Computed example of a mutant assay.
Amino acid sequence: MIASVRTALRWLLAIVFALAGYFHIVSPEPFLVITPDWVPMAEQVILLTGIAEFLGAAGLMVPALRGPAGWGLAAYTVCVFPANINHAIIDLTNGTGLPLAYHLPRLLFQPVILWACMWAAELIDWPFGRRRP
């Protein structure tokens, strides 16, 4: 049962990250708007994040690459958190964007996404039991 859930989550993450990667590459404008000003070469960073999402999605599906892909996607999740915070600040301070009801769950869910990347990649078993050698 747990293996089936893990496989389903792996597929879901692969699809979501591949779609996000696609949009980062073909339509970077919305991502440029929310990228913090302190990020250098924002256009190139957004292109590289799209490529990283594609590679991570593909890596999740290849058993030999699953671990590195999980670590990479977990790190990616941490790295984009400032853009998510910036997005919330932009929307909430100018009153024309998405409401707090969107941003608060999104920000609070970020650790869950990080966990999901690591669990789907079989890097951790928590909370479902200890990892067997």
Rank of each mutant, 00 (worst) to 15 (best):
G129I: 01
M61H: 03
L65P: 11
P30E: 10
V62M: 01
A120V: 07
L107R: 00
I85L: 13
W38Q: 06
W115Y: 09
A75H: 01
L114M: 14
A20C: 04
W115C: 05
L100R: 03
I90V: 12
L114C: 14
I46L: 05
E122Q: 10
R66Q: 15
W38L: 03
A116N: 09
P111L: 12
A58P: 00
L60R: 04
P36N: 10
G97D: 08
A20I: 04
W11Q: 03
M1K: 08
W115N: 07
A52D: 08
I34N: 08
P30L: 10
P133T: 10
A42I: 02
P127N: 13
S27E: 14
S27P: 01
T93M: 15
V39H: 11
L13W: 02
A75F: 12
L108T: 04
F17P: 15
G59R: 07
W38N: 12
L47Y: 15
W71F: 09
T77A: 14
V39D: 08
C117T: 06
I25V: 15
G50Q: 12
D37I: 06
G97S: 10
F17A: 12
P99L: 07
V45Q: 07
L47M: 13
L73A: 07
M41Q: 05
A20M: 08
W115P: 12
A120N: 08
I46H: 02
I15N: 09
H103C: 04
T93A: 14
G56E: 02
F54R: 08
P40C: 13
I113H: 01
C117H: 13
I34G: 07
I2Y: 02
S27C: 02
G67Y: 06
I34W: 09
G21L: 03
F128N: 11
I90R: 14
T35K: 00
L98F: 09
A8V: 15
G95N: 04
G97W: 09
P99T: 06
I90Y: 04
A20H: 11
A14Q: 13
A83K: 11
T7N: 10
A64W: 05
L100D: 01
S4Q: 12
I90S: 03
A18E: 09
M1D: 05
L12Y: 14
L48R: 11
R131I: 04
G21W: 01
V5L: 15
A75W: 07
A18P: 10
I51A: 07
P127M: 11
M61D: 03
H24F: 06
V33Y: 10
S4T: 04
L108H: 06
F17Q: 14
N94S: 11
G70Q: 05
G97Q: 08
